[in-house]
Design a protein around this nucleic acid. Sequence first.
DNA 1: TAGATTGTTAATCGATTAACAATC
DNA 2: TAGATTGTTAATCGATTAACAATC
Lengths: 203, 203
Amino acid sequence: MAIKKDISQAVIKRLPRYYRSLKLLSSENIKKVSSKELAEMLDITASQVRQDFSNFGEFGQQGYGYDVDKLKLEFEKIIGIDKTYNMIIIGAGNLGKALNSYSGFVSSGFNIISLFDIEDKSNENILSIDSLTKNFIEENSIDIAIITVNSDSAQSIADKLVKCGVKNIWNFAAIDLDVPKDVNIENMFMSDSLFVLTYKMNH
Amino acid sequence: MAIKKDISQAVIKRLPRYYRSLKLLSSENIKKVSSKELAEMLDITASQVRQDFSNFGEFGQQGYGYDVDKLKLEFEKIIGIDKTYNMIIIGAGNLGKALNSYSGFVSSGFNIISLFDIEDKSNENILSIDSLTKNFIEENSIDIAIITVNSDSAQSIADKLVKCGVKNIWNFAAIDLDVPKDVNIENMFMSDSLFVLTYKMNH
DNA sequence: TAGATTGTTAATCGATTAACAATC
DNA sequence: TAGATTGTTAATCGATTAACAATC
């Protein structure tokens, strides 16, 4: 899947939305979909759908549209969810534990290997942060680390993860982490989202 | 705070980021900041900072910059976090419970009034969905409902919330909810975020 | 075949960046 | 005063939309 030019952030953020619609259509046993229909589902224009898709290849057929299941598979390849990933969680607070026990991950190919905490909670099957080593990351082929510690400790955890060779971080702490540019970060800033909501309420 | 023209979504999404930087500066007892310094913190241009601010007023002083604490207060007014809000959570799974016990909300003026669930879990101080009525919303002045049920039940819960007069929904279910246009929705699509991360990993 | 719909090129729109006069 | 930095106008850039030839 050699991609010519850089895909814009705007397009990348729409990929999961396309995928969600395709999953929905597929689950309803719908076989074909046009750019116009997809556009309506995402509340964008048909032009944009076709423009977006053209970044990755030619998936449709003139006069017909797109085969839902085929397109869904293409999107799984594009997003990279045709593979499985091993994850660890750092921070065994309420959120960390909630993510740890969320079964939806496993069914989508995301396996949580272990849950770490700064404080010693070894009684609850939670590992001490001291056992988080380069060795551990390598032996367990950890692809993604999820940070759910509080924002004060998040940067030092990120530093440690980077040192251990983690290349992908899913960050829930309300702070912009500073990491080398070969490390991917994706933030889930909950309070930012809540603030956008309060902004809208007030205007 | 009469705002002339419509503020673009791009600007609105930056507001919480400005606010986070201002909180950080304030906590470090820094008194003044220039658009250039703020720009470096957010990794944008100084021009954009000034352009963004000009949507809301004139907060700076030529030759000096911005007073950190004054600007922070302005942002609290703009975002609307100079007030307090009452919230309820629908869905007492792991995530709902985690949000329910997250103390960070209270300190920022977001009070969680109660937690509901579709299944009867009344032994755990969790209310039955049947007690979620228009009356309840009004008597408790509920401003925001947080949806943490699974995506299958999310739309019917949203319908019920709308019927009860809820005007603002913070949605954690992986589905685009259909609500009247006077109801504000802000989505926290976790899997979308995770998929953006896997996309980046693979490209 | 006629109708429908793609993929792509060109036009438009909006957001970001640059420039600079105003002024603290 | 001289230097710094704002707020704003103009220029640029990139993303979205429109149009249409290709073709199933």
